[in-house]
Amino acid sequence: MLLGYIKEVVKEQAMAEQYLIELFNELKTADINEVTAAGVNTFLRLQQIARKKLSSFITTVEHCTDQAEIATKKAITGNKFIELMSSEQQLVFCSVHYHGKTITKLAAELNKPEDTIRLLLRESFTIIRNNRNDTAVHQ
């Protein structure tokens, strides 16, 4: 799953594999303990580490805020959940999830209130939730 995430960011299989190897090789004992600690979602923690590692790469690639890019071919393809999102929701989700932008930074870039960005992000998750037939918490 982690390789899939990295590939979505770097868009190249060989480079994604190299990033994955480096990510694991650079893990310190403390990181391993943290990732495998009880109550911690190991995948999400590794994904956060990967996002941090990819931050330097992310700054060199095209932004999700490229409206033309989104309008023509959509920023992310092949993910049924993301494809169900509107362009605006996808823009927020892509910027946050794949480009590691903070809500504050994204709000400033899009010239929108932080609450609106959070709401769009939440709507993105609601779409995912509704399509996995589990609405226990999100209503």
């Binding site: 299989q13 979602n41 995948f43 993301i82 995912i128 996995r132």
Partner: peptide, 19 residues
Amino acid sequence: QELEKDMELIAQQMAITPP
């Protein structure tokens, strides 16, 4: 925890088995 499941679900959609 539910959100974490959602995140995993998204990742599963794009999952690639490493060689």
